[in-house]
Design a protein around this nucleic acid. Structure first.
Length: 217
DNA sequence: CACCAGGCAAGTA
DNA sequence: TACTTGCATGGT
C-alpha cells in the first residue's frame, strides 16, 4: 500500500487534459542550447524569430557562432530581447564547450549529470534553470527543471514551501517522481503550459479556473 | 497605456 | 544575507 502521490497524480491529470507538449521545439542539440539562453525571461515566440534570423544568416552552428562578431549576433537575436547580454552568454557557453569539451556539444551532453551541470553553472549567464533545461531537453538527463511557475503554483497549494531554494523544490519533485527523463520533460512543459492561463494573485482559484479540479484547494 | 514572458548577475546596505 | 535593479523586445 502506497500513500497517494500528489505530484504524480497532478502530472497525470495535466497530461490527460493538455496532452504532450512536444518540448524541445527545433532541430538538434545546438539549436536547443541557443534557445535555452535566448528564452531566459522571454516569450518563446520572440525566440523563434531570433533563431530564424540566425538560421538565415548561417550562424546557427557551433563554428559559425564562434566566429561571428558580437554585433553580428546581437543584431540577429534582437527580437528575443536582452540581445547584448545574451550575445555574451552565448559566447561564454561556446568558450566553455571549446575549453572543456573539445568544442563538441555532444561531449558536454554525454558527460555525467553532475559534471555537466557544474560546468554549465560555471558559465556566466547560465543559472540552475538554464543548466537543467540543457541537461533534460538537450541531453535527455533525468533532471527536473524548476521555474517561477513551479514555485508560484505549487507553493500556493502548500505542496512546496513558500520560502525555498531552487534545489529544494527540485528535490521534492525528484523524490516524489520516478526518475524518467520523458516524465520530467512533459511535466515541466505542462507546468509552463498551465502557467500561462493560471489565475494569479490571491488564494482561492477563480471559479472559471480549469485547475480547480486538479490542485488541492 | 500597463503588464508580462520557458532568468541571471551585479549592486547596495 | 536580503533586497533591488538592469537587461529589451514584442504580444495582449
Amino acid at each position: 500500500m502506497q500513500a497517494k502521490n500528489i505530484f504524480l497524480e497532478i502530472y497525470e491529470l495535466l497530461f490527460e487534459i493538455y496532452g504532450p507538449q512536444e518540448w524541445w521545439p527545433g532541430n538538434g542539440p545546438f539549436e536547443m542550447l541557443v534557445g535555452a539562453i535566448l528564452t531566459q525571461n522571454t516569450n518563446w515566440q520572440n525566440v523563434t524569430k531570433a533563431i530564424e534570423n540566425l538560421k538565415s544568416r548561417k550562424l546557427l552552428s557551433f563554428c559559425a557562432l564562434e566566429a561571428a562578431s558580437h554585433q553580428e549576433i546581437a543584431t540577429a537575436i534582437k527580437p528575443s530581447g536582452y540581445y547584448n547580454i545574451k550575445t555574451r552568454r552565448l559566447k561564454n557557453l561556446l568558450t566553455m564547450i571549446r575549453d572543456c569539451y573539445s568544442g563538441e556539444v555532444e561531449n558536454l551532453l554525454a558527460d555525467g549529470t553532475e559534471n555537466a551541470r557544474n560546468q554549465l553553472l560555471g558559465v556566466k549567464g547560465i543559472g540552475p534553470e538554464t543548466a537543467d533545461s540543457i541537461l533534460l531537453y538537450g541531453g535527455g538527463h533525468p533532471i527536473f527543471v524548476v521555474d517561477a511557475y513551479t514555485h508560484r503554483i505549487f507553493s500556493r497549494h502548500q505542496l512546496v514551501p513558500e520560502e525555498s531554494y531552487y534545489e529544494e523544490i527540485q528535490d521534492l519533485f525528484m523524490e516524489a517522481l520516478p526518475s524518467k527523463a520523458q516524465l520530467f520533460n512533459e511535466y515541466h512543459a505542462l507546468i509552463v503550459r498551465i502557467g500561462k492561463d493560471y489565475c494569479k494573485k490571491k488564494k482561492p482559484l477563480c471559479e472559471s479556473c480549469p485547475l480547480r479540479d486538479i490542485f488541492p484547494q
